[in-house]
């Protein structure tokens, strides 16, 4: 079975390393620094799941999240929003209870479990 593709949208160099270290064995990772590149990759590649940071250089992750969720093509795309900013994720959950969020620093097992669950 081919590896599922995860798009990681994260500008923090160290975090990018952590994702690689944690996920690269099991999943095919595409890592981008900003929302613009993420949008491009979503268009070009077949993405199964997206890990999205909230504070990005070009726009905030929640904005980007709302944008892509408006597009029919990505309505069903599983997204995990990962950030250090708990209150911003709370705000996001208030407007959309279905959104999946995870606070940094995350527990590896919890994140892996969530990814598994969403990819099923």
């Amino acid at each position: 079975m081919a590896k599922k593709t995860i798009l990681v949208v994260e500008d923090e160099e160290d975090m990018q390393y952590i994702y690689q270290d944690l996920l690269a064995k099991k999943y095919h990772l595409i890592v981008v620094n900003n929302a613009e590149h993420a949008a491009l990759k979503l268009k070009q590649e077949k993405i199964d799941l997206m890990l999205l940071d909230i504070i990005l250089p070009d726009k905030t992750g929640d904005e980007f999240f709302k944008e892509i969720k408006q597009k029919k093509k990505f309505k069903k795309l599983p997204v995990i929003i990962i950030s250090v900013l708990g209150d911003m994720m709370d705000e996001l959950k208030r407007t959309d209870p279905d959104v999946v969020c995870m606070q940094k620093p995350f527990d590896d097992k919890v994140l892996l479990g969530k990814i598994d669950e969403l990819l099923k």
């Binding site: 923090e12 160290d14 250090v84 620093p105 995350f106």
Partner: peptide, 9 residues
């Protein structure tokens, strides 16, 4: 919080 969370992790 970013460096703090990275330190913790």
């Amino acid at each position: 919080k970013t460096p703090a969370s990275l330190i913790t992790y």
